[in-house]
Every structure is written in structure tokens, then in C-alpha cells.
Design a protein around this nucleic acid. Structure first.
Lengths: 131, 131
DNA sequence: ATTGTTGCAAAAATTTTGCATTATC
DNA sequence: GATAATGCAAAATTTTTGCAACAAT
């Protein structure tokens, strides 16, 4: 694996990804950090997110409206994606997502990860009345 | 719902999506059809795929290397995505993907669909020796 | 000093769209 | 004739990248 120097921006990006449950896009992270780090550039956010992916420190959840959404929580759990607002929510079902070794055993497929995505309407959106 | 005229190109696009198990991207469909339909344009493929999505005639499977991959088979089943070659394979597990009504019942989330994605190495890629 | 990191802007790449033309009804 | 579908090219978006400047080791 490549050698990396210390980088306060990289740390800030990783901390931002991990400290939110919004399953953010690169642009979201950039816009959140920009006020505090005025000389941050979007390219740096993309570069570091790519780095975290390669290191396995974050995971890709899904793509909503053309934007990739990521998660700093790499423990087994699923996600609910709202078809209306596009928000991504955590669904705790560790038991379901953890054991995937047997399901495809003997098929020749080497499973490295298993993700369950639920799509539908989130509580917030279903409360809103449509006029 | 909107009214639609007959369109031979639309039919050809839909047939191509349904007759392959490659879980194609828009560009793949375009390139497959182009030789037989020289005056087909990529925009038309995108427009019709968007139409099929709205009608629920196809579903989005995942995004591989920035390309959205679709499936003309909308019956309950899961998918395996190869981290090496990017191919998307069908996984038959109707019983697992069909019943999702209970799992999030009483949570306020209205589930419209449930998708399971397996990521790993496909049989073809695991056979290849790395030099 | 050497190598890693970043800003910036340009480039790539995918997807959408405006508009004139063509096809369907 | 009215409305829908399409080609084409431009535009809009997201993501990547080249390169010079800067920072870390």
C-alpha cells in the first residue's frame, strides 16, 4: 500500500464523513467543510474519498440523482433510500447483512460484501400531504 | 399517464434490454443497436430508458464505473457485481427478495422495493491467474 | 532533497435538454 | 393537423486529472 503523509484536510474530510448519518456525496462534504477551510477544493475531496474507498475505510452506499453517496460506517447494516427526497437512512439488521458466506457457497462467486437497499417513502415524506 | 405513439426504436431498445442478461448501460444498448439502426441517437436511448423506468418496465440495478446498469427482468431476484470486470450477474433468490413487507413494518418506512447486491469476484475473474 | 498533497482549471464522461424535423395518430 | 418521437448538438453534471505550488518527511 502507498505511503501517505499527514494531511489536515484529509483528516477533516474523513471526520466529516464519519460524523454524519446523511450518507453524503462528495459535494456535500465539500460544502460543509468549505466555510471552515476556505482553501479547500472539490478535487481534494474527491481524491481523498477515492483514497478512503481503496483503503476500505468507507463504503459506497448507492447513487441518488447521479451523485454517489458514501458511508463512514463500515459495520454491517442496510440502507433505506427515499424515492421522494433522496435521503438515505441506516437500517440496523446486522444479523441479515453479516452472514452471506453460505448463500452463494459452491457457486464460484467469491462474495466480498453484501448490501441490502430498501427503496420507498421515508417517514418524513409520507407525512407530507400532497396538494 | 402520458400517451405514447408507436415507435420502432422504442421497441428495439426495450427488446434489447430484455433480451440480454448483461444488465446493460445506455451506451451498451446504443452500440448494440446502432449497426442495425444507423440513424439511432444516444439521446433517444436515454429518453426511452427514462421512460421505461417511469413505467416500471425496467429497474436500475447499480452503478458500475460511473455507468448506470439496468435490468429488463423486474421479477424478484438479486445481483452479483464483479469488483474486477464490472460484470453484473443474476442471483436467483426469489424467496429472499420477495418478502420485505415485515422487515420494516411499524418503522414508518414504506418499502416499495428491496434489492440485494453482492460484490466480489466472479467465477470468470477468479480463474484468471494474476501475473 | 524527495515524495506526497493540494488548488486550480481543464478535461472526461455520463446524462439531460432545446429545437427543428420527422413520424404517428 | 395535432401531438409525440427523434437527431443532433449543446448544455448540465459529476468525477477525474495535469501541473505547478506547497507541505511533510
Amino acid at each position: 500500500m502507498a505511503k501517505h503523509n499527514f494531511s489536515s484536510k484529509r483528516n477533516a474530510i474523513y471526520d466529516m464523513v464519519c460524523s454524519t448519518d446523511t450518507h453524503p456525496s462528495a459535494r456535500w462534504v465539500y460544502e460543509k467543510l468549505k466555510p471552515d477551510i476556505p482553501d479547500l477544493s472539490l478535487g481534494t475531496v474527491y481524491r481523498n474519498i477515492a483514497l478512503f474507498k481503496n483503503e476500505g475505510k468507507i463504503r459506497v452506499v448507492c447513487n441518488v440523482n447521479g451523485e454517489e453517496r458514501i458511508d463512514g460506517d463500515i459495520t454491517p447494516h442496510s440502507h433505506f433510500i427515499c424515492n421522494k427526497c433522496g435521503n438515505v437512512y441506516d437500517i440496523c439488521d446486522k444479523q441479515i447483512t453479516s452472514d452471506f458466506s453460505s448463500e452463494l457457497s459452491g457457486t464460484g462467486y467469491i462474495v466480498e460484501s453484501k448490501f441490502i437497499l430498501y427503496y420507498g417513502i421515508c417517514p418524513e415524506c409520507s407525512e407530507k400531504k400532497i396538494h
